[in-house]
């Protein structure tokens, strides 16, 4: 791969910038480097974090120091990454995992659904249809354990955040915030418009991997009834 920049993230990390905009091409570059590092971590590497346009690699400066070399640990890491980037070529992500997320829309599980519909002068059914139609791309995971930054929300239902954030949003709540949509994996405060809730657990520390979603996955939302939601929850218990 070509056209990248390195930025130090403090003295134990380096950020590889692989593009400028949030798009599929940049995402594929990010995924290619992340996949390589997952399969072939180098000596001294601690972990890596893929994001919209970057892959950040954390390293141990002690393991990467060499008193005999004039190079600093940072310079050594950059040289290693340069070699890696010269080897890999981005491939189209044909193998994206598809994860279906059942959502019970509206009612007490989605208290802002009607407000979202009113805001756009749409019917509630239309909002649900527009939210369940696209294939969403998980660009990255961040903010909370297993929280997906999804690309692909229909602009017709993009809705500003609530004026007053809620202090407590339950895990599983599905929301819209600006032109983003997502699912809260753990209970947290937040300002997104809540349109529904999924019975699935997005953060499950006893599993390997510990989150339902990973960067690169494709997400589809499917509308379920309140009865189905309750049944799911019973099964989960």
């Amino acid at each position: 791969m070509e056209n990248y920049d390195f930025f130090p993230l403090g003295d134990s990390g380096v950020m590889v910038k692989l593009g400028q905009a949030i798009d599929r091409l940049t995402h594929e570059k990010v995924r290619t480097l992340a996949d390589y590092l997952e399969e072939s971590p180098f000596y001294g590497m601690v972990e890596y974090v893929p994001a919209f346009t970057t892959v950040t690699v954390y390293y141990d400066p002690v393991l990467l120091s060499d008193p005999a070399s004039p190079q600093s640990p940072y310079e050594r890491v950059c040289a290693l990454l340069q070699k890696i980037l010269a080897q890999v070529t981005e491939r189209p992500s044909a193998d994206s995992r598809i994860v279906e997320i059942p959502v019970c829309y509206g009612g007490e599980l989605g208290p802002d659904l009607e407000a979202v519909a009113d805001y756009h002068q749409l019917s509630v059914e239309e909002v649900i249809r527009l939210h369940t139609a696209p294939d969403y791309l998980v660009h990255m995971i961040g903010f909370a354990p297993g929280f997906p930054y999804l690309g692909g929300l229909d602009e017709r239902i993009a809705t500003p955040r609530r004026g007053t954030p809620r202090l407590r949003i339950e895990a599983g709540s599905v929301g819209i915030g600006g032109s983003q949509t997502g699912v809260y994996p753990i209970e947290s405060p937040g300002g997104w418009q809540l349109i529904g809730k999924t019975p699935l657990r997005l953060f499950r520390p006893e599993h390997e991997p510990p989150t339902l979603l990973q960067a690169g996955d494709t997400v589809r939302f499917r509308a379920i009834t309140r009865e189905e939601f309750d049944r799911w929850q019973e099964v989960a218990r």
Binding site: L9, G10, V49, F52, T53
Partner: peptide, 10 residues
């Protein structure tokens, strides 16, 4: 800016 990694000490 788009979201990207932050670290301890940032």
């Amino acid at each position: 800016l788009t979201s990207e990694a932050v670290t301890v000490g940032t």
